[in-house]
Amino acid sequence: MSFGEATTRGRPSGAASCPCGSGARFSACCGPLLDGAAADTAEQLMRSRYTAFALRDEPYLARTWHPATRPRALDLDPAMRWIGLTIERARGGADDDTGVVEFRARWRAGSAGGELHEVSRFERRRGRWVYVDGITDETPA
């Protein structure tokens, strides 16, 4: 799938819990961001990107990736299921132009599983947060 193709596969109903694990309804959490609303904080953008990975929403991932570091294509593994997110620390609010979010994201692919630990950098461009890059550490479960 290219970044230009939209996806609605498996999109939660508005009343369902948000995949990002915030405890809020999808319609009040990541749903509006995936539909085009701007994130107020770097953490909100990170949570919405986790949700986009879980839903395989490549166009959203492309829109929220800094153009200098965005790959030309992102081939998401259809067997991979993102099953949990923990935010370790976050910096970057409404008055900041840069932010950092450290998180742990758990995944399963068939009988395999693991955890992605990343310290992500974010930047505000033209009033909107974008993902710049991250330092990762992935460990099998």
Rank of each mutant, 00 (worst) to 15 (best):
G23C: 11
G23S: 12
A24N: 11
R25L: 15
R25N: 10
R25I: 14
F26N: 03
F26P: 00
F26S: 06
F26V: 13
F26I: 05
S27W: 13
S27M: 08
A28F: 08
A28I: 10
C29G: 07
C30H: 04
C30D: 02
C30W: 06
G31D: 08
G31N: 13
P32I: 11
L33V: 13
L33T: 08
L33Q: 13
L33A: 07
L33D: 12
L34K: 06
L34T: 03
L34Q: 02
D35I: 07
G36R: 07
A37C: 13
A37Q: 14
A37L: 15
A37M: 15
A38D: 13
A38K: 11
A39I: 04
A39F: 04
D40N: 15
D40Y: 10
D40A: 15
D40K: 12
D40R: 15
T41E: 06
T41S: 11
T41V: 06
T41R: 06
A42N: 12
A42K: 00
A42T: 08
A42L: 10
A42W: 12
E43W: 07
E43N: 06
E43S: 04
Q44E: 15
Q44N: 06
Q44D: 14
Q44C: 07
L45Y: 02
L45A: 05
L45M: 09
L45G: 09
L45C: 04
L45F: 12
L45S: 06
L45V: 03
L45T: 11
L45I: 05
M46F: 04
M46S: 00
M46I: 05
R47Y: 03
R47F: 00
R47Q: 03
S48D: 00
S48P: 10
S48M: 06
R49H: 10
R49I: 05
R49L: 09
Y50D: 04
Y50R: 12
Y50K: 13
T51M: 09
T51N: 04
T51P: 05
A52W: 07
A52C: 08
A52N: 03
F53M: 04
F53H: 05
F53Q: 03
A54E: 00
A54M: 01
L55Y: 00
L55I: 03
L55K: 06
L55F: 06
L55G: 03
L55M: 04
L55V: 01
L55W: 05
R56C: 01
D57E: 11
D57W: 06
D57A: 14
D57G: 03
D57I: 10
D57H: 07
E58V: 14
E58R: 14
E58G: 14
P59R: 14
P59K: 08
Y60A: 02
Y60L: 03
Y60S: 04
Y60M: 00
Y60T: 00
L61N: 05
L61H: 00
L61M: 09
A62R: 12
A62Q: 09
A62C: 10
A62D: 05
A62V: 07
R63A: 15
R63C: 05
R63E: 14
T64G: 08
W65Y: 07
W65P: 09
W65R: 02
